[in-house]
């Protein structure tokens, strides 16, 4: 880390904490502390909603995904515009009209208290599982820019907790909005640097052609067969259908997001805040993935280590005993020579490919001559991917990576940051990474505390507690969740959670949103129907995940189908089960009657 970059980061963090903490001055009532006095404008909330969703994983891992796998991850976000319109027409006005503090409070009014408690507990459990990851993931990656893991964890955990506890939701929303601006600046800075760093004779179009030839620009993925559609992680159908229900649940029933737009001065302000994401999310993810793709093209022509975490191993080999290090050194040398050979083949093939022109653009004549070149390019590319995989195996064997750590691509971005991004700009990008992490940590801290206090404590007391007591309790709960997240981040490495965050969410999101919709679609569904159908939805997704998926072989239309359903589809399944069970249960008077 260079001094100027570090100074920029420290100054940025100090400003955010100061700006957040001063928002808490004089706030004594629950509405002021939990919902920012319901005075927020749409653009501030809109930026906060985006900042809450975009974590440091989004910046670091998504560029890594663009690098290694290309742009197919974009399918994940395609449903956002459609989801936002549905939410603006449904839950946003419902929440506003009923003047609730949490989404789950609305469920008590529509169904009963157990439904509210179940929904709140589901939120608390799923969010608590994810909140440590938000700190842990960047802390691992930032070791490669020279910041020790514990420093990142303690800095992020402590600073976020302090200003969220003092400033409440106003602090969260306003600092989120500012951090989102820093994030966008950081992303565009990366894009420009990645573009400028491409060789002059390759350029942006050349880089995109190479990325296209190695199947990294697959932004419109239609698969021919329903089994493939279900089993493939990111394609047009899983994104538009599974993703739709994931985002309906995430933005419509997850307090982490609901609490941001509930702070709106009017229904219209809240609606417009969600539409910011509807317009900007897909382009933003496109640019982040494009940065990854351009970094890939950069390393086609620039030297790179055998794998991106190799420097960690080299450092240990340099300091350890020669006898113990010898077998590891031999394996690393072998990887390096394989990588060098494949890199040179890939560069030659890429240059030949560019010299001939892309067959798609050049017509049939070009296609005939470039076919072997493309095959060479892909073969060399696959060989390098294999070297990186073997490198991770080596790292695990050396005890430097946990058994579940398989992704070397997460370290591409920081490698590029430390070696290619100029001083000063690197400080901005580093601040953007911290901004992304902190802004997606403070929202769950604020909302975990709010739901724990408002839904579980205040709601179950005989008499509603005084406002000051609610604010004090929420501040204490924020401190608790802050400490929880920080401690969890230290222990996170042993559990394979990084990739699991969206999976955990997908187990409940579809079901959660469906309960809200059930109240609207089925007027007879009242009382216990709410929690019965919610439990059925989440239960069936859990049963599918742990009992059926990848375990059973079914016969469908005379053909054997080993059940293989990717996680985005869980949202649709949970959603359908809740509506079906809710509809059927509402026909039974015995379940229907107690609170009806």
């Amino acid at each position: 880390m260079r001094a100027l970059d570090l100074a920029m980061l420290v100054a940025f963090l100090a400003y955010i904490v100061w700006d957040g903490a001063r928002r808490g001055r004089g706030v004594k009532d629950a509405e002021g502390y939990l919902l920012a006095g319901r005075k927020m404008r749409w653009w501030t909330m809109g930026l906060s909603v985006m900042a809450t969703q975009a974590s440091a994983i989004t910046l670091i891992s998504t560029t890594g995904q663009g690098f290694a796998d290309g742009m197919r991850f974009l399918h994940f976000y395609l449903a956002i515009p459609f989801a936002m319109v549905i939410l603006c027409a449904t839950v946003v006005p419902w929440f506003h009209r009923s003047r609730v503090f949490t989404a789950y409070e609305y469920l008590e009014r529509r169904f009963d208290r157990p439904t509210r408690l179940l929904a709140s507990v589901l939120f608390l459990v799923t969010r608590a599982l994810a909140v440590g990851t938000v700190i842990y993931a960047p802390s691992v990656v930032l070791t490669s820019v020279g910041i020790p893991k514990w420093v990142t964890i303690v800095a992020m955990g402590t600073l976020s907790t302090i200003y969220t506890a003092i400033g409440g939701n106003t602090a969260v929303i306003i600092t989120d909005a500012k951090q989102m601006v820093v994030m966008v600046a950081g992303i565009f800075a990366c894009l420009i640097v990645a573009w400028v760093r491409l060789p002059d004779d390759v350029g942006l179009v050349g880089a995109l052609k190479i990325a296209g030839a190695t199947q990294r620009l697959d932004t419109f993925r239609l698969l021919p067969d329903w089994r493939a559609v279900l089993a493939d992680k990111y394609n047009l159908f899983s994104g538009l259908i599974g993703g739709l229900f994931l985002f309906l649940g995430y933005f419509g029933a997850d307090q982490e997001q609901v609490q941001r737009y509930l702070a709106g001065a009017s229904v219209d302000q809240s609606r417009k805040s969600l539409l910011v994401s509807a317009f900007a999310k897909v382009p933003m993810q496109f640019v982040i993935l494009l940065v990854g793709v351009l970094i890939y093209a950069h390393y086609v022509f620039a030297p790179a280590p055998a794998f991106f975490r190799a420097p960690e191993l080299e450092k240990v080999l340099a300091g350890g005993s020669a006898v113990a290090a010898a077998p590891l050194r031999a394996r690393l040398d072998e990887l390096e020579s394989r990588r060098a050979a494949a890199s040179s083949q890939r560069e030659t093939a890429a240059r030949a490919f560019l010299a001939q022109g892309a067959p798609g653009a050049g017509g049939a004549a070009g296609g005939a001559t470039t076919a072997p070149t493309i095959a060479d390019l892909r073969r060399a590319d696959a060989a390098i991917a294999q070297v990186r995989q073997d490198g991770m195996q080596l790292l695990r064997d050396a005890g430097l990576a946990k058994p579940d750590e398989k992704n070397d691509a997460d370290f591409v971005f920081t490698r590029f940051l430390t070696t290619e991004v100029p001083i000063g700009v690197a400080g901005l990008v580093l601040a953007a990474i911290f901004a992304a992490a902190i802004s997606s940590l403070v929202s769950p801290l604020n909302s975990l505390a709010t739901s724990a206090v408002w839904d579980l404590w205040a709601a179950t007391r005989a008499r509603p507690p005084p406002q000051e007591q609610v604010v004090r309790a929420t501040r204490i709960a924020t401190l608790f969740w802050g400490v929880f997240a920080t401690v969890a981040a230290f222990y996170m490495g042993s559990i394979p959670v990084i990739e699991q965050v969206n999976r955990i969410g997908s187990m409940v999101y579809g079901s959660m949103f469906a309960v809200f919709l059930l109240g609207w679609l089925v007027p007879r569904a009242r009382g216990a129907v709410g929690w019965v159908s919610l439990a059925a939805g989440v239960g069936s997704v859990l049963a599918l995940h742990y009992g059926v998926n990848h375990r059973l072989v079914l016969r469908v239309a005379g053909v054997e189908w080993p059940v293989n359903i990717e996680f985005l589809w869980y949202n649709l399944i949970g959603f359908l089960v809740v509506l079906l069970v809710g509809f059927l249960a509402s026909r039974f008077r015995r379940i229907d009657s107690p609170s009806a």
């Binding site: 515009p81 319109v85 027409a89 199947q215 932004t219 609606r271 317009f279 892309a358 470039t370």
Partner: peptide
């Protein structure tokens, strides 16, 4: 702008995004 017009605009944006991504993928597909 009326809420309904805003919704139409957002939905249209969703469809335009899909179209642009299809063109992008097609332009560089090999």
């Amino acid at each position: 702008m009326s809420t309904r017009r805003l919704y139409v605009l957002v939905l249209a944006w969703g469809v335009v995004t899909l179209l642009l991504l299809w063109l992008f993928a097609k332009a560089f597909a090999v």
